[in-house]
Each structure stands twice: as structure tokens, then as C-alpha cells.
Design a protein around this nucleic acid. Sequence first.
DNA 1: CTTGAACCTATAGCGACTGTAGGTTGTAGA
DNA 2: TCTACAACCTACAGTCGCTATAGGTTCAAG
Lengths: 143, 143
Amino acid sequence: MAQQFSIGEMAKVGNCQVQTIRYYEEIGMLLKPSRTAGNQRVYTQAHRDRLNFIRHSRELGFSLAQIRTILALNDDPSHCCAEVDKIARAHLSEVESKIARLDDMRTELQRMIGACAGGLVSDCRIIEALSDHSLCLSDEHQK
Amino acid sequence: MAQQFSIGEMAKVGNCQVQTIRYYEEIGMLLKPSRTAGNQRVYTQAHRDRLNFIRHSRELGFSLAQIRTILALNDDPSHCCAEVDKIARAHLSEVESKIARLDDMRTELQRMIGACAGGLVSDCRIIEALSDHSLCLSDEHQK
DNA sequence: CTTGAACCTATAGCGACTGTAGGTTGTAGA
DNA sequence: TCTACAACCTACAGTCGCTATAGGTTCAAG
């Protein structure tokens, strides 16, 4: 007999909360599982695989909408891989621009913190820097 | 007579939308301005400065709650700067760990995309990699 | 005096969950 | 068999920081 899983076991495997699994079911990311006589969800290995896919994709930062699309493409195995590739590349460039923005933030924060002499807030360089954008060395984070 | 600003001018200055300004007022980040006879908001330079502070802090990634705290500290000018410094340092380290996580994502995405030969989805290395966490070179993004 | 942009309020929606309330089921030990 | 108690169930509100929509009013230019 095929292996079965409770929602709690699924949550452990997927490294997420029980509510998250129910949420995925609600929005149609996971198929509705069968139930016990007492109305509790019973999952199969197929559910587990799908949850793994979703969770791993989420860890890599894909949106649920992107994951939904990839899963749909996957369901048509004769389909060309190009679209999956396109989604992954788009996501990569999004990740890269997030990194760039955060790098700018880091630079500016370090500069602000470095300038702080630790006196009264009336002399605080951090507050001064936050007050006035023109004090920024770079304007990268404006974009 | 002191300079006055409409909500639209404020939005331009703050590089945000008109609704955002009304939202800041609603949640108490900006003081309620006076109104014209026709019930339209009229802002002063003080409002503008405060909006600048908020928007610049947001661009640097501070949460509204953090900004609220810093503004409160600022309102007590005899207060020591140490707490402001603490918030800024905490935020910096958050930014740094976000960068680290995104760097891991980038590495993994590049690896996946690099492995894709461009055939059918049934042979797709990207989908394979998403399906199975154990295929990851690093497990950094699990944390 | 008309047109149209800019303003007003109130409320719902976004993404991806997370938390709460209040009830039911399953299981392990006495 | 009884009793705890963890794990499950549904339904719905809340998080963050806006953004969008509907339906109405005011302001300034021509």
C-alpha cells in the first residue's frame, strides 16, 4: 500500500506551517487530498512531491504565480523547455537587481553608522542623513 | 508668509503617490494638516521635512515602525543617539543577511539555468532542480 | 461658464502567509 | 474504559506598505 501522510508530516517535509499547506490547497497549488472517516486530510507521495517542488521554488524566491506556471508547463511533457528557462532567467535578473538595490542600501547605512559619534540625537549624523537625501553619496537607491 | 504645499506637490517631493501621503496621515506618521475652505489639505515646510525623512528612510529599507521609533527619539533632543544607532545597525545586519540569501539564490539559479539544454520539459534540468532540494550544491537557502 | 485636472472619502485588494477562536478527532497511558 | 492532550478541523481577521477603485467635490485656466 502506498505511503500516506498527515498534514503535520507534510508541513515537516515542506519546512512550512500546517496552515500554509491548507492555504496552498485553498488557492489551488495543491490538489485536495482524500480524508479519513474523521475528516482529516490524507496525502500521497504525489502530494509530497508537489509540495517539495513548491517549497523549493519558494526558497529560491519564485512567486506562487511563477510556480503555478512552471507546474502547468511541466504537466505538458511534450512542451519545450524554453518558457521555463525564460521564467527562471527573468527571476534571476530580478534577484540580481534586488541584490544591487540592497548593496546600495548597505553602503549608505554603513556610511551613516560610521559617521555617528554617539552623542545626543540633536547632533545625530544618522538622523541628519535620513532627513536629507542630498547628503547621500550615491543616489542609486532613489531609482 | 510660510510656504504651503498641496498633497500633489508633497507627493512629487516625496517621490510617492498621493494615496501614500493620506495613508501616512491615517496611520499617524504625518500630522494632520490644516485644510482649505474647500476641505483640501494644506501642508507646511515641517510636513515636507517629515515626509522627506520618512521617504528617505523607506528608500533605505527601514520599516515604518522603525521610522516611527526614530522620529520619536528625535523629538526628544536630549536623548542619547545610541538607540538610533542600534536601530540602524540592526537594519544594516538585516540588509546584509538579505543580500546573503539573495546571493545564494542567484548562485543556485545560475547553476540551474546553466544546466538547461533547451529540450522538452520532460528533460528539463530546471524543473528537475526545483523538484529536488537535494540536487542543490549548497543548502544555504534552506535556513 | 465650462472643462478637466486635482482633490475628497471610503473601502477593497495585493502577496504569501500567520494568527486566533472555537470546536472535533486521534492516540497513548492509567 | 476513561482521560488527557496533541493534532486536527473550519472560518475568518490581521500582517506590511501600499495601490486601486468608485463616486463624488473643488480649483484654476481659458
